[in-house]
Computed example of a mutant assay.
Amino acid sequence: MTAAAEPIAPSRRTLWRARLATLALFFVCGAALGVWAAHIPLLKSGLALDDSTLGLVMLAMGIGAVVAMPCSGALIHRFGAVAVSIASGLAIAVALALPPHMPDPVTLGLSAFLLGLSLGGIDIAMNAHAAAVEKAFGRPIMSSIHAFFSIGGLFGAAGAAGLVGLAVGAKLGMGAGGAVVALIVLAAARFLAFEDRPETEGGHGLRLPSRAVLLLGLLTVCSFLCEGAMMEWSALFLRDVAGASLGLAAAGYAAFSATMTIGRLLGDRFVEALGPARAVQLSGAVAAVSLLVVTFAPNPWVAFAGILAAGLGFANIVPPLFSAATRAPGVAPAAALAMVASMGYSGGLLGPPAIGFLSDAFGLRFGFGLLVVAAAIVALFARRTISPPSPRP
């Protein structure tokens, strides 16, 4: 009998091309959200929506993303992460152009659902592919890849805001955004693949989570809950609780996002030096202490400094957790990642309303105390939850 040929390891040049193409996908995902966010005021005024109706439209988008994630895991198992990434990226381009053409709130909500569906699909696929590229590199690269999501959001929002300022209208602005997304996805498509076939071991994508996946998902819920709450509530906390000026309060989430992006750009070396479990443990501890400072800050500047530090703390929690999900025993990498991400994004979706209910009942300071507990859970359980990566060949 003739022995099966060993697979040929990809060259470093091929790996770097795959890495850069994966960065482009993360950039596209963030940029699409930035374009969407910048046009929300125009969409609201165009259909004369009240705040509650607009909130339902945004909820439809979040539901679409959460619905897509487990399905994406099954599709990746069948077709591979590269194919699902490209298809989802092109779907984002189409879905991004649709909302300004919708004639009423119902169809606007449907278009938002489709955009969320596309974003949820690419989220799992590009993270699964990034984890495969990271495994081939033999060292952590997930944090810096995730940084390009934030960078894409900055460029997408800034570019769209410029078009809004020029009064080109939502149809042209969001259409142009969709066209740019399609061009970037098509340019990256030819460089994504670096293996002859995708990894599909471990079963199909739709199944109940194992204990290891469930624990990773719970830590991801804690992180996304905090990140979502910072996006929705940090400005209000600075203004109403810490007594900050309007300008300082408005800069709160931007500062959090900036330090998170910096932390992720520098995070690969941090994770490599400490190992993923220790890195997440330390990151959770920094996040918990920082949020504790924010919660009991004696003045707005101390609260603002705590928000800056919290961004650094949360920077390197989710990327190592997503990488760890693809190493969960007995589960296909994409399936495990889909489960963990679905749990995490559900936490991000439900977290801000939960903080609102707690704030109404006990005050916003109490609500931020919940975030301290969530970050502390990450610090306490990271070491016993995250399995180490396989040794380099």
Rank of each mutant, 00 (worst) to 15 (best):
V66E: 00
A37T: 13
I76N: 07
V57M: 12
R19A: 13
V66N: 02
A37C: 05
R19T: 14
G30Y: 01
A95H: 06
C29E: 12
I8Q: 15
G30F: 03
A38F: 09
M61R: 02
F79P: 06
V94I: 15
V94A: 14
A68Q: 07
T22G: 10
A91S: 13
P10D: 11
L75G: 02
M69H: 02
G64K: 01
G80F: 03
G80I: 00
P41N: 01
C29G: 12
G55T: 07
A87D: 07
G64N: 06
A48N: 13
C29M: 14
V82H: 13
R12Q: 14
M61N: 12
L59K: 06
A38N: 10
R13I: 10
A21C: 12
A83K: 15
A9C: 06
L54V: 10
V66A: 01
A24G: 08
G46I: 06
G73W: 04
A95C: 14
H39V: 02
G64L: 01
A60H: 02
A93K: 04
T53H: 05
P10I: 10
G34D: 00
K44W: 11
T53A: 13
W36Q: 11
V57F: 09
K44V: 13
M61I: 01
L54P: 05
A87S: 15
L20R: 13
L20K: 06
A95S: 15
A24N: 06
G89I: 04
T53W: 06
I8N: 08
I86D: 05
T14C: 07
G55A: 04
I63P: 01
P70R: 03
L43E: 05
L54W: 11
R13N: 12
L59E: 05
L54F: 12
M58Y: 09
A32E: 00
I8K: 14
C29R: 04
A9I: 08
A18H: 10
A60E: 03
D51Y: 09
W16R: 14
I63Q: 01
A38S: 15
A37G: 08
F79R: 13
A21W: 04
R13L: 12
A38I: 03
I86V: 15
W16M: 13
S52D: 11
G34P: 03
R13Y: 05
V94H: 08
M69L: 10
F26T: 00
H77N: 13
A93S: 13
L75Y: 08
T22E: 07
L49E: 04
A31I: 01
V84T: 08
